[in-house]
Write a protein that binds this DNA or RNA. Structure first.
Length: 263
DNA sequence: ATGGCTGGTAGAACCAGA
């Protein structure tokens, strides 16, 4: 039996985070690392740096300033492709096929701005439309697939520090949660996070930078996810949220997720 | 106490994140 270990992390700039990316690779030795918010065009992405560490297979989809996703891997990556679910050219998705046949999709769903009303905040509409286009893709999907990344939605009441306080806060509003639920139902995606940490157990992946001490009030949200096709559900044998990374030096506001798939 | 911070692009004060 072979196992592959896949990590997913919104790093909030791969260049600013390079020292703690090194620490993650050293401590966890994932076979594949999916990054979101790399904030680097492909020409300034630290490709050689990853190559030196054994991550010689890379699929990059970056842009200037914002967003940007990448998959770096010690195992071969085939059939790369990018969906423009935002329909405006932003670099928010990169997908590949693994040698075992599984497709791996790395996604960065837009945050959606401040006001949860598409009539006054176009970014919120873009976010809902993004999830809707993903749903159209997902309902036609037949191949065994693992979709990971920053979904920017905390779907369950226990996925936020206070359901009541966040009902009107973008990331946990009912309209977003309903959109994400439709996406999940469209392929009967297995939410690996909640398979290993059943609700209502505490499970957060993001804590705001604005808190002076993120551990003190623990006002977290579960915004990052790993979903797998139903036929692969039984093959996911481990899952971890690397919460201690939030206290590493110059951290991202998101922490890495890890899963292990048995082939 | 949902922005109190952070990064990128600037080359000062913006935007964006969520």
């Amino acid at each position: 039996m072979t196992r592959i270990k896949i990590a997913s992390w919104n790093v909030n700039s791969v260049r600013a985070r390079i020292d703690i990316v090194a620490r993650l690779l050293k401590e966890e030795r994932p076979d594949i690392l999916c990054l979101q918010e790399t904030k680097a065009t492909n020409d300034i992405f630290p490709s050689k740096w990853f190559r030196r560490r054994g991550y010689v297979h890379q699929q990059l989809h970056g842009q200037k300033m914002h967003h940007g996703v990448a998959i770096v891997s010690r195992i071969e990556l085939d059939e790369p492709g990018s969906h423009d679910w935002q329909d405006n050219g932003e670099a928010r998705h990169i997908g590949v096929r693994l040698p075992c046949g599984i497709r791996l999709e790395n996604v960065y769903v837009p945050a959606g701005g401040d006001i949860p009303d598409r009539t006054v905040n176009p970014k919120f509409g873009q976010k809902l439309d993004f999830i809707e286009r993903m749903t159209r893709w997902s309902e036609k999907l037949r191949e065994p697939t693992l979709v990971v990344g920053d979904f920017n939605v905390a779907p369950l009441e226990c996925d936020v520090w206070s359901h009541k306080a966040l009902l009107k806060v973008v990331s946990h509003t009912p309209v977003e949660v309903e959109a994400l639920n439709r996406l999940q139902q469209s392929h009967e995606w297995v939410d690996i996070g909640r398979k290993f940490v059943p609700a209502p157990e505490r499970c957060f992946t993001w804590w705001s930078y604005r808190s002076l001490d993120w551990t003190r009030n623990d006002r977290g949200r579960r915004l990052d996810h790993m979903w797998v096709s139903p036929q692969l559900g039984g093959q996911v044998v481990a899952h971890h949220v690397l919460e201690p990374c939030r206290s590493w030096r110059r951290p991202s506001d998101h922490v890495p997720l890890i899963c292990e798939v048995e082939l």
